[in-house]
């Protein structure tokens, strides 16, 4: 007899999961050895969030965004953020034509918007993304224009070079569900990449293996993934711990809790499960929390990273598991041990 909730018992859910599996495999044709960050980025998209990629130049941030857009069959637009970029260059502008103002949509009216080197634009331009990322719409000259759905912003920034950059404000950072790092490939992966890209770049021929409708259906399915009440308490405890940590001056807000839950649901979905495990919560927290924390001066002086503090918190918050001590007391020593 099959109990309810069996893993991948729902044929529709299984089929949708298989589509997302194909997306990951498709992206892997372009990015060698980056399955984990691909999975996390896809989880962020499935959770309806936006993603901030922070890494050194040439690690594949742009390629990841392009490959995801191509695989998901979404429209793709890239905006190179520079200090002279204006908000209207992103959102669109009204032009006086034939006796009336007409709205000319900007590159933000797309499926996946790659905001390349977002921290090079002025805060004013960065803030132009706030409404779009938060509410899926753009207001220009008092008129609100809805963006297409799904809409995902994948922004990149270089963590090393800070000259001529404007650090993203907290409110803007909070709009990004996940902050990920692509990371350098190891030696073998780099050799494999050289061989694969020797003659032509596979991104040029990368076809779609899913469509916007598949993505929307998957996003709906993700929201149905079960999160047990004690896992929700566990999740909230993690976020709460960031507010009382001695080295954190500003902890994560409730939006982070929602973000972790949504990302954990998406990770469970990608794993073909219809329930979230504490491992999903931990993996999600590692992507959702660090960029939302404001470290105090002592932590910054000691060069402590937010990621390491999150790791410390994850290492202290108890995971809901069986009360094994009660079992050990109640049950006799296993006879199977001989």
């Amino acid at each position: 007899m099959t109990q309810p909730g069996t893993t991948a018992s729902d044929p529709h859910s299984s089929a949708a999961s298989a589509v997302m599996e194909r997306v990951q495999q498709n992206v892997a044709r372009v990015l060698v050895g980056k399955e984990d960050v691909t999975r996390l980025a896809l989880a962020g998209i499935l959770a309806g969030g936006h993603i901030l990629l922070e890494d050194a130049p040439g690690t594949g941030k742009t390629m990841l965004a392009r490959a995801l857009a191509a695989s998901l069959g979404l429209d793709f637009a890239r905006v190179q953020f520079t200090p002279d970029l204006l908000p209207s260059d992103v959102t669109g502008v009204s032009i006086y034509r034939e006796g009336q103002f007409q709205f000319v949509p900007g590159p933000i009216f797309t499926g996946i918007l790659l905001a390349d080197e977002i921290n090079r634009a002025t805060p004013k331009t960065q803030s132009a993304l706030l409404e779009a990322m938060g509410e899926g719409q753009v207001t220009e000259s008092g008129v609100t224009h809805a963006l297409q759905q799904p809409f995902v912003v994948i922004a990149t920034q270089n963590p090393v070079e800070h000259e001529g950059t404007y650090a993203l404000p907290e409110a803007q950072l909070d709009r990004f569900l996940l902050k990920l790092s692509v990371g350098y490939p190891d030696l073998e992966q780099e050799v494999q990449m050289l061989g694969r890209l020797q003659s032509a770049h596979p991104i040029d021929t990368l076809g779609a293996v899913a469509g916007p409708a598949d993505l929307l259906a998957a996003q709906r399915a993700v929201r149905e993934i079960t999160v047990s009440p004690d896992l929700q308490r566990y999740l909230a405890s993690i976020v709460s711990a960031t507010r009382t940590h001695s080295r954190i001056s500003l902890g994560a807000g409730p939006r982070a809790s929602l973000g972790i839950q949504a990302a954990a649901q998406a990770l469970a979905y990608l794993a073909g499960r219809d329930f979230v495990t504490p491992d999903d919560v931990k993996a999600a927290a590692r992507g959702v929390l660090p960029h939302r924390l404001l470290l105090n001066i002592e932590a910054r002086m000691a060069d402590v990273s937010a990621a390491s503090l999150v790791e410390e918190i994850l290492g202290t918050v108890p995971v809901p598991v069986e009360a094994v001590s009660a079992v050990a007391q109640a049950a006799p020593e296993p006879t199977a041990a001989g």
Binding site: M1, T2, Q3, T7, S9, L231, F275, T277
Partner: peptide, 14 residues
């Protein structure tokens, strides 16, 4: 164990 403890289900065989 994961599906049993965290909200899913399981088959007799599992």
């Amino acid at each position: 164990y994961a599906p049993v403890r965290y909200g899913g289900g399981i088959t007799e065989a599992q």
